[in-house]
């Protein structure tokens, strides 16, 4: 809490960073994460693997929400960084780096590679930005698909972890997935609390007004783009250590974009809670519609249209239209006491 010494009306005012509800929410979140850390000891192996898949989806949703919800950039090329993250782990392991250690390096590399990408993609706006990122993802796929040391178009397996028993491997993968989810959510939360976060919310709400109040819009957007790329790269690293194989067509699949867009839209775009809700709903849908094959994707597409047109703020945004509530303490609230 910080005291403001002078306000325009000479009133005393205080700024608070959270409500009771949001502190309870944060506490609950931490408790859930701690409980989840012990899940492999209690649940069966199948549940552990399912939860790993859920965390991967959650991380993707957080990454896409950051770039689209806060950055206002509809990217349909984030699979470039997902695939890049997977292949970076493979490449590092071929150079003798154990896959677990390769994960943080691969995440950092995904962020780094997005810097030159941003300079190209940022020349385009709106819809053309969207297709531009798609083309860039295709370039990633084509270039990596031609590296014969990485398996070329047929793909390759990650043999690094073969000496571990499947259960040990799955459990470690699970903890990595949980840790990266917590990390992605924490970084996003802390970023939103910071000065950059305020700039970001200003850019989200109105780019021109934000620029007029001194926000460096392009720099803020670039930072978000890089962070989102690193998060998506993180999802990619988890994909390879849980599937133990990569293949250009599936690692860089446009379906990831469809999944991310669906989760964020349904949960509530541009909110901290939205991607979490969206990932839970998507995960349940995926589990229950698994037998329906392509129909499941048709339903996904139809949902995307329906939600965009009739529920544009998603589930969380509809519950909280004024951005007042928050499950974690992210917002600044000004209380003015008139004397």
């Amino acid at each position: 809490m910080s005291e403001l010494t002078r306000t325009p009306l000479d009133e005393t005012a205080t700024v608070t960073r959270g409500t009771r509800g949001s502190r309870v929410g944060l506490g609950t979140g931490i408790a859930v994460a701690v409980i989840l850390a012990f899940a492999p000891a209690v649940t069966g192996e199948a549940t552990t693997n399912d939860l790993t898949q859920f965390f991967i989806l959650l991380i993707m949703a957080v990454g896409w929400n950051l770039v689209a919800g806060y950055g206002g950039m509809i990217s349909i090329g984030q699979q470039a960084f997902i695939g890049f993250g997977s292949y970076a782990v493979l490449d590092l392991s071929l150079h003798g780096v154990l896959a677990w250690y390769a994960i943080p390096i691969a995440i950092a590399l995904s962020g780094l590679v997005s810097i030159p990408v941003s300079f190209l993609a940022f020349r385009l706006r709106g819809g053309y930005f969207a297709i531009g990122t798609w083309v860039i993802a295709q370039v990633f796929q084509l270039v990596i698909g031609q590296q014969s040391n990485l398996g070329g178009g047929a793909g390759a397996s990650l043999n690094d972890l073969n000496n571990l028993s499947p259960i040990t491997r799955d459990n470690i993968t699970y903890w990595f997935a949980l840790a990266l989810s917590v990390l992605a959510l924490s970084v996003t939360g802390l970023l939103l609390r910071s000065r950059i976060g305020m700039a970001l919310v200003a850019v989200r709400d109105d780019e021109h007004s934000a620029a007029a109040t001194g926000v460096n819009v392009v720099r803020t957007k670039r930072l978000i783009f890089i962070l989102s790329a690193a998060i998506c790269g993180g999802a990619g690293t988890l994909l390879i250590i849980s599937n133990l194989e990569v293949q250009p067509n599936s690692s860089f699949s446009i379906q990831y974009s469809a999944f991310m867009i669906f989760m964020v839209l349904v949960g509530g775009i541009g909110s901290f809670e939205g991607p979490i809700i969206g990932a839970v709903i998507f995960f349940i849908l995926e589990q229950s519609l698994d037998n329906y094959g392509v129909w499941y994707l048709v339903i996904l597409g139809a949902f995307a249209i329906i939600v965009t047109l009739w529920l544009p703020r998603g589930i969380w945004g509809t519950l909280d239209p004024q951005h007042r509530r928050s499950v974690v303490p992210l917002r600044h609230q000004l209380h003015v006491d008139t004397e």
Binding site: I74, A130, V294, L297, G301, T308, L309, P312
Partner: peptide
């Protein structure tokens, strides 16, 4: 979709694209 702002048309047409491709596949 155009009434819904800048992002809506993209999301709606992307949804349409997924529907068409998968219905054709089916």
């Amino acid at each position: 979709a155009l009434d819904g702002g800048e992002l809506s048309p993209l999301l709606v047409t992307f949804g349409l694209s997924i529907i068409i491709e998968n219905l054709l596949q089916q």
